[in-house]
Simulated assay, not measured.
Amino acid sequence: MPSAGEHDQDRGDRVRRSYDAVAGEYRTRIGGELAHKPLDRALLGALVEETADGAPVADLGCGPGHVTGWLAARGVRAVGIDLSPRMVGLARADHPAAEFRVGDLRRLPAADGEFGAAVALYSVIHLAPDELRPAFAEMRRVLRPAAPLLVAFHLGDEVRHMARWWDHDVDVDFHFLDAADVRAAMEATGFTVRAALERTHYPHEAASRRAYVLARRAV
């Protein structure tokens, strides 16, 4: 019988292959989305204001690098990390002012305390519920004391499986999460939640309610 670790590895491999498959189309469809997301821009701006001068900011689950690039364009030392090598390749080509690395949320390719802030926008939705705490513990590891963290996710209690995405074969699950569960996982791993809010989807987005949690790593 496969171990829990083997199941986790298989899930990660499926997510990686799926995002490699859709990377080009994802960049075309999603790469300019911040222009139509005023709340996201406002929250990212608040995160930047709370980041120590000169400290690098991690974009965890960066996809084609549009958020990382947005940060870099504002003078931030931005580092994007994504599980998909193809996404990272596109991000490097499109956003040369930023740094990009291939890596897993559960095993981040970063040193202890390397970052002065981090964002994880819709990346934790690919984790199983029992992986949330380990992932947040890993985020805490790479953040400096008192560093801010912004997390966004879909609200709910369902798991949506996709086998076909934009005319590509994929095998990926999207976990809709309970805000209280996410908050509890963050607090249990050494974060202090400072603000939380919800919104409905914008017209161009997939239909779901969205949540944002702004926290700070405990000293």
Rank of each mutant, 00 (worst) to 15 (best):
L83D: 00
D171I: 00
I30H: 13
R17T: 01
H168A: 14
H161T: 05
E33G: 05
C62L: 15
A111K: 09
V151W: 12
L108H: 00
V142G: 02
G80D: 02
G113W: 08
E6W: 14
G32I: 03
M87C: 03
A42K: 12
V15G: 02
R92P: 12
L47H: 02
G45E: 00
E198G: 04
A152E: 13
Q9E: 12
E25T: 11
G156Q: 01
A206K: 03
A211Q: 01
R164W: 08
V119I: 14
T28H: 11
E50K: 14
K37T: 03
H201C: 04
E33P: 05
A110L: 06
V151E: 12
A188T: 14
R194L: 15
A35W: 08
A98R: 00
E138F: 11
Y19P: 08
D59Y: 00
D112Q: 15
D53R: 12
R160T: 08
A110Q: 06
V22Y: 10
V57W: 03
H36W: 12
A42M: 12
R141H: 06
R74D: 08
Y212W: 15
R144Y: 03
E33R: 02
R160I: 09
H126Y: 06
R14W: 00
A52Q: 14
R17D: 00
A4M: 09
H168K: 14
A184N: 02
F115N: 10
R92T: 04
H95I: 00
W166N: 10
T51N: 04
R209M: 09
D112Y: 11
A35V: 13
D53M: 08
V170S: 03
R209C: 02
H204P: 01
